[in-house]
Design a protein around this nucleic acid. Structure first.
Lengths: 214, 214, 214, 214
DNA sequence: GATGAATGAGTGTTCATTCAT
DNA sequence: GATGAATGAACACTCATTCAT
């Protein structure tokens, strides 16, 4: 696997000197901080540059425009989230479905802790552009995987079914984050999310629970 | 109940004359058209005024600022959606749960047809501000109602549970709209949405399906 | 003839109120002054707005961009020049060729006095864009007319010939302006310009002066 | 005569090594290419450096600023043009005036072929600064020389007269280049240019053709 | 000598909002 | 009530130039 595969093209210059590497980090970190502090409205290229302790010119040496910077940030956040879920799933690879589902749910919810505003803004911003789909896809795919990998007791899901579970789960979490629900990290909420996924998946594998017409 | 109860304060002047009523309509319609045509980026107060065939001054006579206009538009869209769902639910008031769920799902999906861009923009814009919660709440409540109203065969849902079903359902639909999923209006998709809601609700009423630990 | 026929499209809004008329004048005058004072390098939209005593926003209400403003200015200058030449020619309509040529030459040279820098900058700027041709055309045509209108003792000129006289004459004057030649307004210079035009035109009508091979 | 006498000061460092010589060439060539490809608007020091395959730092090692680079380029182009005219004149040194005039005219027109955009841009740019005069002077002088060198059948020309012929000729050619006249390289156009010069010069030597008052 | 990362003043342009008519 | 001219803070982005390596 390549050193830093990019999901979407957004860099303008690939840093060759060590100094540049740090600069890029600083810019990204600055972007996250600005977003966290003031939301999307405060996210101006000048503000990011200042927060990053870099000149505005430097920022533009690495990101062709504001959108590219936002996309890069989104990518970074996504990668973190995906990695977290992947690890959780891997750690529970031998556990029963309930455990695995719970682990995944927990990882996702966890990924949306700290820096909520930045995360929120990134999500909004990313949706505001056309990138949503490509960006969200890998995460969604990952989430759906739990149900799609044919395993004992878990059925294959049709595209529509994968879409529905993954988006439903994400939608519930997303709403909890955006609406700043107090129970976001509660056990009760986690339970319900797990229930959502499991009851759905089981309903697919056990036709008895649904009327034929459905 | 007042004729036009407002969910959020956004009007500046309550129109008393017929002409004023038309003006407000024109502005709102202009706003929707601008949004539909050019997305959030094209949504400027000047553009809306022009599209509405009204002077910018007049627009500001009715809406204190851009946000108020957006909120008013969101409210209008919401009202339409809610009304549709209510009607559907009412028409099927004596039908079995499956039928009712399907009717509601269909009404919601239907509400997101036509003017997708405007709807998308409204959603984004509304989220971009702080209004999300108050605005989304009534719709969510309405949706959840199907499961919350104690009926034979359907249990009471806890706040977390109401939250999860309603947001999950909305999340799946929302994603289908935003990602422009081809199956948005397909029967298969509708089936899965119904399954999502019913399987969840049944799982709550039938503790057998879930492990005690969950 | 319309009230203010435009050679090139550059206005954004047609002023309806009296106030607006003045504003447009002020902007154009400000533009000329900035150009005169600091040349093309100083010609920034902000500088023009300030000099015109108008906000930058107002400037953009009338000119879609910097180029449009420059074009409008060029047009105004051109119109003045053309009018001057036309008047001169008209006043001498019954005079012999020498007199008419001299009158035209004098009018053109005169048109390039005062505000030389502004004029210089306008010329440069206009050439820097693609507009040169359409803009210069009417003036050139006008100049060439003296030689093209069949009159007793003056021949018809071919397109190439019209091009050559008009551009040669303009070229000499232009150079005198740009190089800030001290003799720009001298009688001697005027004499030579007249000689240039007349000797050329006569050479065309009197084949004897040129070898057949030429 | 020194190997590379400069018309205007623009170099920062005189290259002594072969490699440096190449570097300077590359930069100049890069500059011409950028100008040709994108006009003056694309002419940025960074673009030139990149096109030349040289780092921006290196460029600044040889040219103190953007203007110096432009001047150097203008100088190079001029030298080429002058050399061409000189050669043509030299080859026809024993020919009659008509032949010599034609040879010179042809050489000048020829010099403005290929790389028209670059040439155009150089002219504009050079004029945009103050350098016009010193730069144009040598060429103009050269052109005027044909008429100023006292020869049998050709008179001495006064400064004004030299100015007028040279600028008129250049003006016509310049206009043909800038306006992209289709007849630029036609025989007919060449004929008229020759006529322009000869008829003027003859008019000076033969007072009969002009009224005393002129 | 060469490199290229970094700089930051400066530019064009937008758009929410006001207020005199 | 309505109009639309005017405002100006704010922004995204460019590019000539420097200097540490």
């Amino acid at each position: 696997m390549g050193k830093s595969r990019q999901l979407v093209e957004n860099k303008r210059r690939i840093p060759r000197q060590a100094r540049a590497e740090e600069t890029v980090s600083a810019i990204l970190e600055g972007a996250a901080q600005v977003l966290e502090a003031g939301g999307l409205a405060a996210f101006t290229t000048n503000a990011v540059a200042e927060r990053a302790g870099v000149s505005i010119g430097t920022l533009y040496q690495y990101y062709s425009d504001k959108g590219a910077l936002l996309r890069a940030l989104a990518e970074r956040e996504m990668r973190v989230a995906i990695t977290g879920v992947a690890r959780a799933l891997h750690d529970e690879s031998d556990a029963p479905p309930e455990e695995r589902a719970r682990a995944a749910v927990r990882a996702i919810v966890h990924a949306f802790h700290g820096r909520q505003r930045a995360r929120k803004a990134v999500v909004q911003a990313v949706l505001a552009q056309g990138i949503a789909i490509e960006m969200v896809a890998p995460v969604a795919a990952f989430i759906a995987e739990a149900g799609s990998t044919p395993r004992p007791g878990l059925p294959d899901l049709s595209p529509e079914q994968q879409f529905v579970v993954s988006r439903a789960l994400m939608g519930a979490i997303r709403a909890a984050v955006l609406e700043e629900a107090p129970f976001l990290k509660s056990r009760a909420f986690e339970d319900e999310l797990v229930r959502l996924v499991l009851s759905y998946v089981r309903s697919v594998s056990d036709p008895m629970t649904m009327k034929p017409s459905l």
